[in-house]
């Protein structure tokens, strides 16, 4: 069990029964999905784009099994914009919950026997009796890149 007495904020993204948690510092904005423009049929790995001052931001949509979808689902409500250093993208999700992490919330490193090369999951977290997958901007970006490169 990993304990950290320093309270940190984090955001849980609900995606088709799956829960991903990002450090709050990786999230720069949350847009409603209505702001996204569908890109269906142009790039099967990108579900939509958001128009941002910096240009078009790709919106990725995961299934509940963390597989990339070519379009937003009916359950998609938000596009969470994620940024760290030069990495900048958006993930569609059904819901977002911001929580304070503390030592009472159990986190465990991903067991070696469950690891695969391309998985973005860094740890497993137990929150309100739900298993939450701990990721960050860079680990998900690395996974997105590996999918785009057909490594998965």
């Amino acid at each position: 069990m990993i304990s950290d007495n320093t309270k940190q904020s984090a955001a849980i993204l609900s995606i088709g029964g799956l829960k991903l948690i990002f450090p709050q510092s990786d999230i720069i904005s949350v847009d409603v999905v209505a702001d996204a423009i569908s890109t269906e049929n142009s790039n099967p790995l990108i579900a939509a784009v958001l128009n941002k001052p910096e240009g078009e931001l790709p919106v990725y949509a995961f299934s509940g099994e963390l597989q990339l979808q070519s379009s937003l689902t009916d359950e998609s409500r938000f596009c969470v914009c994620i940024k760290r250093h030069d990495v900048y993208y958006s993930l569609a999700c059904d819901g977002v919950e911001v929580i304070q992490l503390d030592s009472n919330i159990m986190q465990e490193l991903m067991p070696f026997i469950m690891k695969t090369d391309n998985s973005p999951v860094l740890k497993l977290m137990l929150y309100k009796q739900d298993v939450v997958l701990v990721v960050d901007a860079l680990s998900v970006n690395k996974y997105l890149q590996s999918v785009e490169n057909n490594d998965v």
Binding site: E65, L66, M114, K115, T116, V131, L133, Y143
Partner: peptide, 12 residues
């Protein structure tokens, strides 16, 4: 189930 895990150890 935990996604993107090996089939022989895909759940907790």
């Amino acid at each position: 189930s935990v996604p993107l895990t090996p089939e022989y150890c895909s759940s907790i």
